[in-house]
Design a binder for these strands. Structure first.
Lengths: 363, 363
DNA sequence: CTCGCATGTGTAACCGTTTACATGTTGGTG
DNA sequence: CACCAACATGTAAACGGTTACACATGCGAG
């Protein structure tokens, strides 16, 4: 019979082994437990021993393997973020908001973008299982309620700007009210025929803004016909729609674009068609992206705090995690309500043709 | 003495235990090994057994705990992305590019933003240890070479648009050449006094563009004085600089802004000062963000494929990982060169005052 | 009829941590 | 002086997977 080898099997150390807690323990002449205690700032270790271990940790530049820690503690401090294929500043602002709030809480973000149906979303979520503690999901194109049911196990999740049912936690922008307010404003400026450039057909916000346009039109200008041109939230589609509107006869007095990008595209189209805004045609957008204030004429729009949306969503998911855990993550948590709706706030600039009295309504 | 309990210690199951491979194995009446084999698509399991296990997996909706798998396989399929505090479309385009390439390879992105010095960067990287297989780093404000040295263990990493030394892998935009080309173009349009709105002082790209401006000015217009106004890559700073330039006497013929955002800000300032672009003053930007084509007059700029930068950086880090591993991650890898420089390509539109013959140089 | 080999399945070691519990070692107290 | 608390430290189980190796079986060849 062969003697049992007590050297570790080499097969299990295929690559350059990194420094583990065991290496530190051996080097310092203590057990792994003590090293662990020092690493986690426990106080039940003698000052002298602690110093020795500390020194070795620094000398070897040991930093713990978070994956392993996560396995036993079941805390990863990672939030999964699932977004559709987003463009432009909306995307970056949203991420910034989420990231800001995450940084404050020392949380990490695992990003995943899926531009597909519910099945793809579920797959993406599954592929995060065992890594994330909570989920932030933006599913603007479909009914988000189905997603959570299709999951094998419940993960704390918060939806952003999605159509949710059944009281799932969510943070949204009130696109409908914002659109109504904007149309109302255009009417108050004296415009009587108001066209709409809509966003993608399968998008929730897009749908809500269009609905707001239609309802307010019917309410404010009884008898007025809705005129809707399709767009896709991109500048190019706004440009195209702008060209179409400029060529139209009779030309509408004003245009309400479903977002600023398209409004800017339309503005550019009007300019190249020789129309003067707002004298010949007025326009208003939605979102108040930073550029809206810098185009000529400056764009009237509905301000949406996108970063705030992200920030609130993250705080909400933290609250959901704490709820599931039955204990605060760190400090006493900041529990937000289950369903939150942010109100867009109209920003009146030049493009709508409002007769501004006194100082401009501008930051 | 007390009998040794053989029930698992309850302390270790503090929360709703999720379905593990053991549950599946028990339910299917096999060992965990067989379940694992099925999950990983190994062929050494009988068709009948496989079907039974498969059924249980689906019924219980089992999906493996990735963190645990990662521990033993040492593969997480996660790439860490470390970015500075970025704004606007540059950020979103970059992420999109990285994400696109990551999706193709079924990799995940762990996002972290740090707007600080090297120490903070190192801390952020440490906090990813044991979770990421590679790193994508953008450190525009400092010498990135120091970072890799301060790390306890080498992780495959690729820098983006950073000042690197010592042949560290990187993907960058050739801001210097781009700036020279743009200034050269302005000169060729007949402009003789050309001002520059620069980016943040501690930014690498900003520095390179400014250097390109100065060198080309000296080369093309010997004796011309450089006129540099400070900016910060934001529209507002461009607007402020634009106001200052418009009020200046004598007014420069043309302005080269270090990025499009500032150029658009300046454009807006010129408009509100009653100047007509390009007749009274010409302007050119850098980046070619989508909006550049939609402002009036359309902005002449240097096109930078930001998404491409991200895509290439990700491919490069995959190559670096494969190199470190000594084997391809999946299929034969696409090894990119160690240091890659992307050339910006001038896009001539109206704002520079070029006498465009024939069809516009526009997509 | 044995032997060898292929094939399918189970057992247990291992990844790098945390932590409950056991085991010293003190020092104070009755 | 025995006893016990308090404290420091070590030991080993556990987290949820993967996989090398052992083992059992069936079958064809010598």
């Amino acid at each position: 019979m062969s003697a049992k080898s007590n050297t570790p099997r080499s097969k299990y150390v295929p690559r350059a082994a990194s420094i583990t807690i065991k290496d530190v323990a051996r080097e310092a002449g203590v057990s792994v437990a003590s090293v662990s205690r020092v690493m986690n700032g426990h106080d039940n270790v003698q000052a002298e021993t602690r110093a020795r271990i500390q020194a070795v940790i620094e000398r070897m530049r040991y930093s713990p393997h978070l994956g392993a820690r996560e396995l036993i503690t079941r805390r990863s401090r990672i939030i999964g973020v699932l977004l559709p294929d987003l463009h432009g500043e909306f995307f970056s602002e949203l991420i910034r908001g989420i990231d800001t709030a995450a940084r404050e809480r020392k949380l990490h973000l695992l990003l995943s973008s899926a531009h597909g149906d519910a099945a793809e979303m579920v797959a993406a979520i599954q592929s995060m299982r065992g890594r994330v503690e909570g989920l932030l999901i933006m599913a603007p194109h479909l009914d988000a309620s189905g997603i959570s049911e299709r999951l094998s196990e419940p993960v704390p999740m918060v939806f952003m700007n999605s159509r949710v049912e059944g009281g799932l936690p969510s943070v949204s922008i009130d696109s409908y009210s914002g659109a109504r307010a904007m149309v109302r404003h255009l009417v108050s400026c004296g415009h009587r025929t108001i066209a709409h450039i809509s966003g993608p057909a399968d998008n929730f916000d897009s749908h809500e803004r269009r609905r707001g346009y239609e309802d307010e039109l019917a309410a404010s200008l009884p008898g007025a016909r809705a005129l809707i041109l399709p767009g896709d939230f991109g500048e190019a589609s706004g440009h195209a729609a702008g060209c179409a509107l400029a060529a139209r006869s009779p030309r509408p007095d004003a245009v309400f674009a479903a977002n600023d990008m398209m409004a800017i595209g339309a503005l550019s189209a009007f300019g190249s068609q020789g129309l003067e805004v707002p004298r010949d045609i007025a326009i208003a957008g939605f979102d108040d992206i930073p550029l809206a204030a810098f185009v000529r004429p400056a764009l009237t729009t509905a301000r949406v705090h996108i970063a705030e949306l992200g920030r609130l969503a993250l705080r909400r998911v933290v609250a959901a995690i704490e709820l599931a855990l039955g204990q605060p993550l760190d400090e006493p948590g900041d529990l937000a309500p289950d369903c939150l709706t942010l109100q867009p706030e109209p920003v009146v600039r030049q493009s709508c043709g409002a007769r501004l009295a006194g100082p401009l309504n501008e930051k």
